[in-house]
Amino acid sequence: MTAKTPMIEISRLRKCFGQLEVLKDINLQVEQGGVVALLGPSGSGKSTLLRCINLLVTPDDGTIRVGEASFQFGKSVQQPKTRSLAAFRTRTGMVFQSFNLFPHMSVLGNVIEAPIHVKGLDRKTATDQAMAQLEKVGLADRASQMPDTLSGGQKQRVAIARALAMEPEVMLFDEVTSALDPELVGEVLQAMQKLAADGMTMVIVTHEITFARDVADRVVFMRDGYVVEEGPAREVIDTPRMDATKTFLSHFHKGASPR
């Protein structure tokens, strides 16, 4: 690992929803080009942590830095303005479990929407770039279709292309295969794998343990708002040290353990 500063740096992050403390003192760093998988049982705070990285969820306390932009949170710190929040979010792309494509726009319309209206690109340039992104996920021939004519796997690949069209420094994936029929999971994971191979910095919340083991270089295991264990993906998944991690992974392994 080089000595350069990490792409994502999160320190002393806290978040409460009412009485419930969802994130308790989270520290996390992701190298440039690093792929980190966030694992853990539901309710462990992994999705909230992911949403804090692009500030869809505003933390109560702590610092978040992505690339050159950083925000500090706390009682004494003023809440960031909506404009600076929006500008910050253009640095990160996010893909959601439920796709969240814009149903009133064509596939191409979905992909060029933000480049035109947020970045201010002209339609021609935006369209060329969008077609290149759609080509990458294998859906260039669907550009003029409406989202509801696509399969779940195709929708999710469009969502990936839409996020990539903003040329983000970081991509966040929030259980992107959980809403898919099993036979459609592969095509989405494949697109993500290609992206990782291209050197994109990625944070992935997933239940696909095998995928995490193969594609992520680091795994962060969370429970009850804490990071319980983190380390190289294969090490944590094949030989977990903490009991919580062992229990969680035992639901998935089914004899796949290397021992």
């Binding site: 692009n54 869809l56 909506t82 404009r83 929006a86 500008a87 979010r89 253009t90 990160t92 792309g93 996010m94 959601f96 439920s98 969240n100 494509l101 814009f102 929407e113 933000a114 209206h117 947020v118 970045k119 969502a159 839409r162 996020a163 903003m166």
Partner: peptide
Amino acid sequence: DPGQSEAASALGMTP
């Protein structure tokens, strides 16, 4: 669906 405004926010759109 609130997911629509989430997706818009995530793309850097102002409210």
